[in-house]
């Protein structure tokens, strides 16, 4: 096995990572959005519905991207991944379906009762908390989450705090309740990232079985959260969502770095599972083309939303 081949496999793993980062950011905003309905911030809820509804739930495309990328790039590893992740993924998929029905009812069908709104908020925040547990399993190679409750709780809380921070930042309104939630959510996310993530990663001895120090994989979260703090301190100080997005990316990258070069630690190597050369080139090229097309569109969408928000 050559070093080049291993590098290529890790590089290809960057594609599901990219989708995971995008899903974390856009999904985080969506997962936190039902809080607007809970806090009676009608302006926030209305803005969320009006300006995010065109791409509402198409955020799932990024989740499909993660799944499709793993299935196609590391398809040979699916029997192993399936046996480990199946209950978690089916639980998440079921929660997504419940949430989908609630979204349609609350945001499109005018369900105003408290029960529906609370249920929507709870399910919405539970989904990232469940999905991030993939990292617990893939970092430990143990499908039984009960054996790693420390990681489960730490990562779940982190995912929820990031969702709160992202939502509150994106729909930040000066002088409104969201401002306080934004601050609370953002600083909670920073604290959890800095202090509990290394602890969570180190909780199982097999996590860094190659002898690396836990802190050696933490540079993305420290580096990017520092950038996030600087962002807040700059003239963009009101753009909490940019800072939260940067922090979210840092967490995702950290979990990725901690896992390399394994698909499932500590035994299943990426290089043993990566697909053939043709598929690698095709997938990388298609991904690059899609980025070229879609990123400008997403940017324009964001500007349109921002312009509308000011009016």
């Amino acid at each position: 096995m050559t070093a080049d081949y291993q590098t290529a496999a890790v590089a290809m793993a960057g594609i599901p990572l990219a989708f995971a980062i995008l899903y974390s950011i856009f999904g985080g905003i969506e997962f936190g959005l039902p809080l607007a309905a809970l806090t009676h911030d009608k302006a926030g809820a209305a803005r969320g519905r009006r300006y995010f509804s065109p791409i509402w739930e198409s955020t799932n495309v990024f989740l499909v991207g993660v799944v499709a990328a793993v299935m196609t790039i590391f398809g040979a590893g699916l029997p192993i991944l399936s046996s480990l992740l199946q209950p978690l993924w089916l639980l998440a998929a079921g929660a997504l379906a419940v949430r989908g029905a609630l979204i349609v009812g609350v945001f499109y069908g005018g369900w105003t009762n408290w029960t529906a709104r609370v249920l929507l908020a709870v399910v919405s925040l539970a989904i990232p908390a469940v999905l991030i547990q993939n990292s617990t399993i893939m970092l430990t190679g143990d499908g039984d989450l009960l054996n790693h409750l420390g990681m489960v709780v730490a990562l779940g809380t982190l995912a929820i705090s990031l969702a709160v921070a992202l939502w509150a930042g994106y729909f930040y309104t000066p002088g409104k309740t969201t401002r306080d939630l934004a601050r609370l959510g953002f600083w909670l996310a920073i604290m959890l990232s800095w202090f509990t993530l290394p602890l969570a990663i180190a909780l199982d001895g097999s996590v860094l079985s190659d002898g690396r120090n836990v802190l050696s994989v933490m540079w993305p979260v420290y580096g990017l959260s520092l950038l996030a703090v600087l962002t807040l301190a700059s003239e963009w100080r009101r753009r909490y969502w940019v800072a939260s997005a940067v922090l979210t990316a840092g967490v995702a990258i950290t979990l990725f770095v901690a896992q390399m070069p394994y698909l499932v630690r500590p035994t299943v190597l990426l290089t043993d599972m990566v697909t053939n050369g043709f598929s690698q080139i095709w997938i990388a090229t298609a991904f690059g083309l899609a980025v070229v097309v879609v990123v400008p569109v997403l940017f324009v969408l964001h500007r349109l939303v921002a312009t509308d928000s000011r009016h």
Binding site: P54, I55, S58, V61, F62, V64, G65, A68, A69, M71, T72, I73, G75, T275, F278, S279, W282, I283, A286, F287, L289, A290, V293, V294, V297, L298, V300, L301, L304
Partner: peptide, 21 residues
Amino acid sequence: GFAFFSEGLAFYVEAAFLGLY
């Protein structure tokens, strides 16, 4: 797999332009 993956990307383009539309 390349077709599976590209299908996801096509959906991704559809969703982005639908938002713009």
